[in-house]
Nucleic acid binder design. Structure first.
Length: 174
DNA sequence: TATTTGATTCTT
DNA sequence: AGAATCAAATAT
């Protein structure tokens, strides 16, 4: 029997490509307005620093990517296509811009696919950008079971060219 | 200051 | 296959 517990801080100190698959099966807890939502993570993607052309930080340190240079456990939220928020968890070390995108979750057995829908279901908005995971801002993580997963190519990053768009950095529950 | 574009999703 | 819709990064 494994009791739900907060993950240790050094859980996020690893590289994105290690943290992303490890997050599968863990629970994302969202508490807002007295309501608590427990979401199992079933799909993630890794974004690996400035060398990764699909990572926003590949363009260098800018106002937007500054968040990814913060220390592990920082929340990176950003608006894409003018209508969808993306939820990312900054990992690795300070000044090493890596992050894990939460692409799919499961709430009460109901699967939610797509990063835009995840943030909608969890009431994630830009106010969380730059905050830390924890009860203070009503968003944190609890360790769950370890899931088997499969690796696939990332989605929506065709513009990065054949190399980075084909890297197997997307992790899905098997 | 103007233009381009995207870690998407829903409709036609 | 295309529209919706806007903030941030580039280009001018």
């Amino acid at each position: 029997m494994m009791k739900a517990r907060k993950v240790s801080d050094n859980f996020f100190n690893k590289k994105a490509k290690e943290v992303a698959p490890a997050l599968l099966g863990s629970f994302l807890i969202r508490e807002v307005g007295g309501k608590k939502i427990k979401a199992k993570i079933v799909e993630t993607e890794a974004y690996c620093g400035e060398k990764d052309l699909a990572c926003h930080a590949s363009k260098g340190r800018t106002g937007r990517t500054e968040i990814m240079y913060q220390k592990a456990g920082t929340i990176y939220v950003y608006l894409c296509y003018g209508m969808h928020y993306m939820l990312n968890i900054v990992v690795s070390k300070k000044d090493d811009p890596e992050a894990v995108l939460i692409r799919g979750i499961e709430i009460d057995g109901e699967k939610i696919h797509g990063p835009g829908r995840v943030t909608k279901a969890l009431n994630i908005n830009k106010k969380l950008n730059g905050k830390k995971l924890g009860p203070k801002d009503g968003l944190w993580l609890e360790k769950g079971e370890t899931l088997k997963h499969q690796k696939t190519a990332r989605i929506g990053v065709h513009y990065t060219g054949p190399i980075w768009s084909k890297r197997l950095l997307r992790f899905v529950e098997e």
